[in-house]
Design a protein around this nucleic acid. Sequence first.
DNA 1: AATGAATGAGGTTTCATTCAT
DNA 2: GATGAATGAAACCTCATTCAT
Lengths: 200, 200, 200, 200
Amino acid sequence: MTRKKPSERKEEIREAGIKVIAEEGFHDATTDSIAEVAGVSVGTIYNYFSNKEEILHYIFEVEREKITDFFTGLTASGLPAEETIRRFLKRYLGRALKNRRKSKLLLDEEHRPVKKVSMEILDYSMLLKSCVKELLEAGISEGSIRGELDPELVSGMIIGAADSVVVKSFFTDDCPDDVLEGASEEIVETLKRGIFNCEN
Amino acid sequence: MTRKKPSERKEEIREAGIKVIAEEGFHDATTDSIAEVAGVSVGTIYNYFSNKEEILHYIFEVEREKITDFFTGLTASGLPAEETIRRFLKRYLGRALKNRRKSKLLLDEEHRPVKKVSMEILDYSMLLKSCVKELLEAGISEGSIRGELDPELVSGMIIGAADSVVVKSFFTDDCPDDVLEGASEEIVETLKRGIFNCEN
Amino acid sequence: MTRKKPSERKEEIREAGIKVIAEEGFHDATTDSIAEVAGVSVGTIYNYFSNKEEILHYIFEVEREKITDFFTGLTASGLPAEETIRRFLKRYLGRALKNRRKSKLLLDEEHRPVKKVSMEILDYSMLLKSCVKELLEAGISEGSIRGELDPELVSGMIIGAADSVVVKSFFTDDCPDDVLEGASEEIVETLKRGIFNCEN
Amino acid sequence: MTRKKPSERKEEIREAGIKVIAEEGFHDATTDSIAEVAGVSVGTIYNYFSNKEEILHYIFEVEREKITDFFTGLTASGLPAEETIRRFLKRYLGRALKNRRKSKLLLDEEHRPVKKVSMEILDYSMLLKSCVKELLEAGISEGSIRGELDPELVSGMIIGAADSVVVKSFFTDDCPDDVLEGASEEIVETLKRGIFNCEN
DNA sequence: AATGAATGAGGTTTCATTCAT
DNA sequence: GATGAATGAAACCTCATTCAT
């Protein structure tokens, strides 16, 4: 194969990994097929990853970095909690709906039992929740969010709602963009007003 | 080995399956170890299940039946939506926290790609969500829940919140019973009042 | 199951064995399916046969006995060799074409490598050939058959021709009875006149 | 292990397959033992064959090709039918007697029930018979063979006679070369003169 | 760095046989 | 004698990983 910058090669493998693992699941995704999709030979994979599981780790790592970067900017923005949560959701759903294959992988494999690496490192859903949790805690500090809430529980609520939308999108073909706008807003709105009539 | 009633034997294998699969994950759970834990020889497993995957299916099937049974009684009770949701949650969390191993399995394996059976049948989380969704729709009908909500999204929210609690419990050793009471109530309360201060 | 004379039971198993082994081949014929076809439980098979291979042995044994009985009568008849060969063939083909399933089994399994029992005992085709060989040797003694022939080779020729007809019948559905008459006669005729024109 | 040309490796496995399958029978020939005899690991077998049965197929395929090649040359030779039959037999017996192990395999496994491939393709004995059949038909066309004969039946006769010799050789240790010369000639001679005295 | 043939541990599954009832 | 649940050895095959080229 033609020489490329190592970083490109690794990137190609990561992308192939996403395709194949999303399609087949981690266990049924063979290194051979990942190599084939990446346009590379199996041996080459092992120049960039020490084993198959590392590919999955790396996929999650990249996602975590993207989230972390966005999150850092978000918290630095000085916006009120409601707005940061809205933006975080919008961005999470936006990316998820734009790349359903990857989203499927992230949802399917997030609980995969891990041997070598600490669970914290892999667990993408935990990262998501802890981002939202921090936003909630900031809201509590600034007084916009009720102090008696359990941020952990509410963050589960928020991510749960968002994932609902993502999972639903796996089974439908409707245009994601509308859904996205609506869904983020709807989640925030629901959090704002509660779900019951009258008795607030 | 001494003869037993087939239903007992199958039950023993199911329970062993839960233990081993929860511990190792479906793929790493070997049929040999399931057999060993069940106190049975490998061959015996195949008198009750046509293959390893069927064990997992059966585990989910039994859980689904339990939920469905409880849900049927609940909807027949004529209680107001808020109360049915509270009870459903209490019961879901109660069982989950009492049997963390099984809960771990249910959460870990619910997204497993399925070959033979329709996704709907296996997908335990979908059943949960659709139960909650029905309770929400009943609430909308009876007027106690705001009609403009998307029941699908809110059910994701509720199950997401509950699973948050369950996942958290995997890492802590505190007494589940308090948590349980508190958590169900807290979820309902949050749904009632929304999360933001003042501006309702 | 209702009590039966042991001999009937053994006979039922033999017949079931023929059906299943002819259909599936010896290896793929499970003792379970033989038992099922025989209307008996697996355990019962082992009251009549010490193992699966014994069923096959017994099937061949019965066939060998039938042939031997017929052959004994034939040699005692004092008929000329040509006629005895004709009759032997007619009977062989007659039975084969009437019971193609069994014939298939006999042809398929005759070469099966045998562990426990001497080859002679199993080898049905050898018995057939040696019968024909004896008839040929009698013909040589009586002077009707040319003495310079190798009876072994010629018996292979005769059985080969007959099996040709049998194998062909597996793929056709035409009425066996005509075929039978014709084929035996044709074989004898060919043996008589040779296959080449003029130069005899 | 050192790299080799794929064709060599496949050939080594084919040869090992012949040895082990001839010795043990197809079913009792384990992939492990074939690999061991081939001086290769099990996995390597599966780089060249998709499953165990394919090894058997390939063994037959190679034999069929050899026969077909020889046969093609033979029919192109323009020799009279009697001579072509004599040569075909000589060659068939020559190879069979020189490689008894392989011959045993070919005779033992030719009736093996086949799942994937059409019977015609596998059935080596059918190929043999159809070659002889064509030679006979050519003889009928050229007028040297009696037109009222059934070529199918006579070809069974000829191959039956030849196989007689081959099977006999499994139990004897005498020098094949003499046998070979004698046997082919004897078969042709018998076909020529018939077996009975006087009455031609 | 890239290749891909070779490796071989290890997993699932089958099925003849046993034996308590 | 009959039953059929239980047994467990043994086979096929997969596929992550290695390493000579």
